[in-house]
Design a protein around this nucleic acid. Structure first.
Lengths: 220, 220
DNA sequence: TGTACATCAGTGAACGCGCGTTCACTGATGTAC
DNA sequence: TGTACATCAGTGAACGCGCGTTCACTGATGTAC
């Protein structure tokens, strides 16, 4: 009981907000994020358009909420995997958590990591959630092997001096920072191509490409 | 002279079409592809809205043309690099051609490889251009080394039986197919994160990450 | 338990906007003899 | 070289639509005494 006792009205408010967001996701799934329309959501809920302004100040606030929820749910999935009893998940484990999360709702993935919605800029608390994510990832990268080639060494030198983004791990070796970036970039590469349907006409199993990329990454 | 003699009217038509596309790119740069508006383009050109229907059947046809031009220009850049006098460009060379092309116009990159425009499906001749691109890439992957791990071997086995997408190279070894996919996916990973601005707040030089990914890929 | 008042969810009308697209029309440019 | 006709670029009005957002209002739900 941390003072979160809810009056019936508060409970109801929250319930409606949730339903709005649910319909919003459905609409995004159908026509993309930039076509999100408050009026259309209201109609789908059997309400008049202006009613939604009781729940969201405007369209932008709704989008922000959706983006926040997206990051939050991925961060939670990472943290949960990290806290799972039988030892740390490792990079491969996180990769599979990420893939499952992405396939669960491709549009949610793109809202977080896809082409930026034009004219929209994420507020700071979302950046903070992204940092939580990065912290779990950096944990899993702790055992990174040394750089294998000149360019990787150059990157590590650079990262040793530019590591504010990894503020949660001030003592992580540059190799860990490098590995975390490689994880992020490579997983995003396969996943975003797959989710965008770029493998569609190719009669190819994206899961196998994903697995190969994961193993190549872990093997270093 | 291959019968391409143009009447003044044809020349003018083509000129206006080019100008429309030019303004379209500017508009996409400002507000994203899904906000592309024929009326707005017309206004910017000092014409009335309906005038554009002399040049494009509708909005979709204009978008298709832009997508086609995007793929065409990248394919040309690849082919030109491939035909350059001093030997084949190699994977690293192609990687740099790709990066230069992407940075030249980020929105063009996203129109081709980003989140799909909802409700839009590319016509077949664009698929053919994508195949030209793939052919150059497969050439550069000819000398691929053997798979280093179990998952990569599994992927190669799969590709040996699913290689229609590489129809231009029916005799390429599975290792080459695997390398081409890895190239595509990894380069897309770094580039799309960079262009979407996901490294922005991180005070980090994306070029170094890119170089490291290229060398890791080539070293295999 | 009942009454008086405050809070708040939701409505319907309205504003101004921009969109894609069609249509009948004007006026300039090109073509045929 | 001049005239008659066909072609075609561009206009302005119009249609129907959906958008985000504001505003004054009704009616239900909760609160205080």
């Amino acid at each position: 009981m941390t003072g979160t006792t809810k009056t019936p009205r508060e409970r109801y408010r929250q319930q409606v907000r949730e339903e709005v967001k649910e319909k919003a996701w459905q609409q995004i799934a159908g026509s993309g994020a930039s076509a999100l329309s408050l009026n259309a959501i209201a109609k789908q809920m059997g309400m008049s358009g202006p009613a939604l302004y009781r729940y969201f100040a405007n369209r932008d606030e709704l989008i922000t909420e959706l983006v926040r929820d997206a990051y939050r749910s991925l961060a939670d999935a990472f943290i949960e995997a990290d806290a799972g009893g039988a030892g740390r998940p490792g990079l491969a484990g996180l990769a599979h958590v990420l893939r499952r999360w992405a396939l669960e709702d491709p549009h949610r993935y793109f809202l977080a990591y896809g082409t930026p919605v034009p004219g929209y800029h994420a507020p700071q608390d979302i950046t903070a959630i992204a940092a939580e994510l990065m912290a779990v990832l950096l944990d899993a990268c702790a055992g990174a092997g040394p750089a294998q080639d000149a360019q990787s060494r150059a990157l590590e030198d650079h990262l040793a001096a530019h590591r504010e983004w990894a503020a949660s791990h001030p003592d992580a070796p540059p190799a860990a920072l490098r590995l975390a970036l490689a994880f992020w970039s490579r997983m995003h590469g396969v996943l975003s191509l797959e989710l965008a349907g770029h493998f569609n006409g190719m009669d190819l199993d994206p899961a196998l490409l994903f697995e190969a990329e994961v193993e190549a990454l872990v093997a270093g």
